[in-house]
Design a binder for these strands. Structure first.
Lengths: 220, 220
DNA sequence: CCTTCTCGGAACATATACGATTTCGGATAC
DNA sequence: GTATCCGAAATCGTATATGTTCCGAGAAGG
């Protein structure tokens, strides 16, 4: 009995494959996604690949031009700033909603991750810092009970991580303040602060990062 | 010379066609979207229709089951509540960001729309009220300069209007308070209040509607 | 030397065809 | 009468084929 049971559709396979490569930055911004090539690489026809790309398009990871093709979305500075601003809004809200549900265990874990961030401050590697930084925030917002909102947060992170290098490439100094602000947020939550206060702390934390980026010395 | 110039792709055509019918509630929640039927109706093959449905799926308007097919997403009560909560967050933020850019003209227009809402309070029609209500809020948030955020607001409204009947079907009394709160929001903006204050007013305005819905007498 | 036109290849858009899977009704066994 | 099994119809999933559009290279003309 030959195994002709595609547990998951090829369309989904292609979607995951491309998505992974974009977020892993193997396909950088502007990278041309040629249907035929991808289909050949994945040993399938172009049809499932087309569908996968349509979905990625709807998520904003890919731009599509009629009769020309798809490429990984590239973001200019203003778009990047807008995306960060939006992420601040939704992530802040998610964190605020999650705060009352965080256990002491969660907070200890958050502190542990923040410790790792502190350790990274010497021998600074922007990309690794960004990765661990995301892990930190995930601990805080994942308990949010609103799946819609959580989905928006995830998409926001995905876009940013896929479409642009670490912000800390440009403003490494911001990382030190960032770690301190993390501690502040944890303290607020542990003290049982008003969720709105937690939300605004999380939001402003992110917005300050954007502002630091905008105010950086070298505008190339 | 025969006109064989497809200005827009058939895929896009199908997307718009389905999207319109969902938001117009011709295809209600749970409606089965059969590829072949739609393709025949639009006089095209199933391939473009598939792509269109994939995009709608990514936007959450349509759910898809492997080897079974697509149907218009149906929302249970909790999902509805989450969607409204999320809309409150993003719409509130957009309104707050838009507030400083609103002109006196905009505010007059908002007041005019709110007048129409007041007029609708007698001979109450929930659907029409919802439509004009959306128009009111659109006046306030459309000036938001962040296109990402604005996109999230639009998607939120689309989902809600497509997937469920007017909230005011269930809690008609809420409409009177709603109109009053609108006036409050306008006043805040005109007085040049802190954007954060405007944001929270807009958010809480929506959240109160959800709460009214949850607290309604008849839980069928 | 620069501009413009033309042509050919590359890539997309869509149609058609076929195989695979699910679903549902009816027949059969108990 | 009910439960189970089987088969046909419906529908999806994918491959292949063909037409169309876009883009760049190279030739022709100014």
């Amino acid at each position: 009995m030959t195994d002709t049971q595609p547990r998951v559709s090829k369309s989904t396979l292609a979607y995951d494959w491309i998505h992974r490569r974009i977020t892993a930055r193997e396909f950088g911004p502007g990278y041309r996604l040629v249907l035929g090539d991808i289909a050949r690489e994945l040993d399938m026809s172009v049809v499932p690949v087309r569908e996968a790309i349509r979905r990625l398009e709807a998520e904003g990871l890919v731009t599509f031009e009629h009769n020309v093709g798809a490429r990984v979305a590239l973001v200019d500075q203003s778009e990047y700033v807008f995306a960060m601003q939006t992420l601040g809004v939704v992530e802040g809200a998610a964190t605020g909603l999650a705060a009352p549900h965080l256990t002491e265990e969660d907070l200890l874990r958050a502190e542990e991750v923040n410790q790792r961030l502190t350790a990274l401050l010497d021998h600074f590697d922007p990309h690794q810092f960004t990765r661990v930084n995301q892990e930190f925030h995930a601990v805080l917002f994942e308990r949010c009970e609103n799946p819609h909102l959580l989905d928006l947060v995830h998409r926001g992170w995905t876009r940013l991580s896929g479409l642009r290098d670490s912000t800390f490439d440009f403003v490494p100094d911001r990382s030190r303040e960032s770690v301190k602000e993390h501690a502040d947020i944890i303290r607020l939550i542990r003290d049982g602060a008003d969720p709105l206060e937690v939300e605004l702390a999380a939001r402003n934390h992110r917005w300050r990062t954007v502002n630091a980026y905008l105010a950086r010395p070298h505008h190339e």
